[in-house]
């Protein structure tokens, strides 16, 4: 199955939109999950898109744009991996590590190029400020949309339009003579979320709240084993007993999140009570901090 022109068109337009959403609205339509969902729908296989998008989301949970540093473009990776996974019948987890991750990291260079190109517009704006040309200032500022969007749209378009043959060959190899590599890539796809979690822990105050890491892990590990075993029993019983109508769902992550929320709320009431009692002191330090910054300025 090859990718149709209208599919290429929608996906290219989305690639341009998602980066603007990322730097402006942050509406969650910029996340790999939505990228996967949309690409999946466009390609006619929502499930594959959600699996690839979800895996990429977990991998980049803690990777934000800190101080304007370029980061992995997980979304462009998800678009291409989903499109080719559906088009060539590649296994979804395998597509994460063979396509999504390499694409996401190569796209870092396009991000740098886009941000670099914008420097040109910044100088045009300086010139317009001197001329007091308000329309000119605004025109060159809004033109910044071009480097941002095109830096994503061009590579995504080229890959979708011309990359199919190459990807099909890779898939044939991974399922044929290089099966060990294909299986390895699937395993890697399953391990990659672990990197996302570790990165996230590096950004969170782990030392202070390490007990909650254990709590979250142990509660979930025990319950997920329990639920998994009950499901297995349910299926087994269902295949033997005729009138068996029980249905067993897996562990609900939302329920686990609510336990976490409860713990966070308890902590919040303690923390705000502490701050209230130390109110005066806190204000004093805040003012101090400000004074310090102003000294720096002088």
């Amino acid at each position: 199955m090859s990718i149709q022109w209208w599919q290429i068109l929608i996906l290219t337009l989305y690639a341009g939109y998602q980066v603007i959403d990322e730097i402006q609205f942050w509406s969650s339509l910029n996340t790999p999950i939505f990228g996967g969902l949309l690409t999946g729908l466009v390609m006619g296989d929502m499930k594959t898109g959600l699996v690839i998008g979800g895996s990429m989301q977990l991998m980049v949970l803690g990777i934000g744009t800190f101080g304007g540093a370029s980061k992995l473009d997980a979304n462009s990776g998800t678009i291409l991996a989903t499109a080719f996974s559906v088009a060539t019948g590649m296994d979804a987890t395998q597509a994460v590590s063979t396509l999504a991750v390499p694409v996401a990291s190569l796209m870092i260079y396009m991000d740098i190029l886009g941000r670099f190109t914008n420097t040109f517009f910044a100088h045009r704006i300086d010139a317009e400020v001197e001329k007091m040309n308000y329309k000119g200032i605004e025109r060159y500022f809004v033109a910044g949309i071009l480097p941002w969007s095109l830096s994503r749209m061009i590579p995504v378009f080229l890959a979708l339009a011309f990359g199919g043959g190459l990807v099909a060959k890779v898939v044939a190899y991974l399922n044929g003579p290089l099966k060990w590599l294909g299986d390895g890539m699937s395993t890697a796809g399953a391990v990659l979320p672990a990197v996302g979690f570790a990165i996230l822990l590096r950004y969170l105050p782990l030392k202070k709240h390490v007990s909650y890491l254990f709590l979250g892990f142990v509660i979930t590990a025990l319950l997920t084993t329990l639920f998994g075993n009950i499901q297995a029993i349910g299926t087994a019983v269902g295949s033997v007993v005729k009138n068996f109508s029980g249905s067993f769902n897996g562990l609900s992550m939302l329920a686990i999140a609510l336990i976490g929320l409860a713990l966070a709320l308890i902590n919040y009431s303690h923390a705000s009570a502490m701050i209230e009692s130390k109110g005066a002191a806190a204000v004093a330090t805040a003012v101090d901090a400000k004074g310090e910054i102003e000294d720096d300025e002088l």
Binding site: L201, P205, L213, G216, F217, V218, T220, A257, S272
Partner: peptide, 22 residues
Amino acid sequence: AVTDSASLMGIFMVGALVATMV
């Protein structure tokens, strides 16, 4: 206070994720 409590929940969730998503 908000950041501290939200980080607590974030860390709790990472624990839960480690147990289910790898």
